[in-house]
């Protein structure tokens, strides 16, 4: 018979606004990582739901407008599959969130490389891939966002696509909160300028 499992928190209950609240969230992450290491699908599913928003945000911002939603979805799936396979190498389980952001960045880079290969293989030089039918303003914004440099792009994506607080981003990126705020401010000003010029490159 399987031993009784401790309850899994469905959503982040403790407040993120306090150091203690964030510590509690990280402790919950640590418990979920340890259970996932034993093959507990429910625990890893909870980890996915807790962190999927930031992974989608980073993938959408990194891959840009021409990426189909499916590309972003694929990239995010690859991130979590890689995370599961590499979970045993994570030395500080409470830092799962920061670790996942690193994996997401690597996967976005891989996806961009793959896209570059496919594009050069299928399109004559100088031609862009046709836009997906129904491409809207959001696609143009994501396209403009993808041209920002890191760390501005990452900070803007986590703040305004994933809805993370500047304090949480600062903790994740291990920089002062004021630095994150200035990255966001600079990134948004660049985004606005790029959109005013017509977006894109």
């Amino acid at each position: 018979m399987e031993p009784a499992k401790p309850p899994i928190p469905a959503t982040p209950e403790p407040s993120r606004d306090t150091g203690a609240g964030r510590d509690a969230l990280e402790l919950e992450d640590a418990a979920l990582v340890i259970r996932s290491l034993k093959g507990d699908a429910e625990a890893f599913g909870t980890l996915i739901r807790r962190h999927e928003a930031r992974v989608f945000a980073l993938a959408a911002a990194g891959l840009g407008g021409p990426a189909r939603r499916a590309d972003v979805d694929d990239c995010a799936q690859e991130v979590f599959l890689a995370a599961y396979q590499g979970l045993g190498t994570l030395k500080a389980p409470e830092a799962f969130g920061s670790w996942l952001v690193g994996i997401a960045q690597r996967q976005v880079f891989q996806a961009l490389k793959k896209r570059g290969r496919n594009r050069s293989a299928t399109l004559p030089e100088g031609l862009e891939a046709p836009k997906e039918a129904g491409a809207g303003e959001e696609e143009a914004v994501l396209e403009a966002l993808s041209f920002l440099q890191d760390p501005e792009r990452k900070a803007v994506a986590l703040r305004h696509l994933a809805g993370e607080s500047p304090r949480d981003i600062a903790r994740m990126m291990e920089v002062p909160e004021g630095t994150v705020r200035s990255w966001i401010s600079r990134g948004l000003a660049q985004l606005r300028e790029r959109m005013a010029r017509g977006g894109g490159a």
Binding site: F44, I48, E52, A76, H160
Partner: peptide, 24 residues
């Protein structure tokens, strides 16, 4: 103003409901 541009993009970048199930 820049953040306002991202409101609809945030909606587009939202993970689908069944995402965790598909990964698992």
């Amino acid at each position: 103003e820049g953040a306002g541009l991202l409101v609809s993009a945030a909606e587009a970048a939202r993970p689908p409901e069944d995402f965790s199930r598909r990964v698992l």
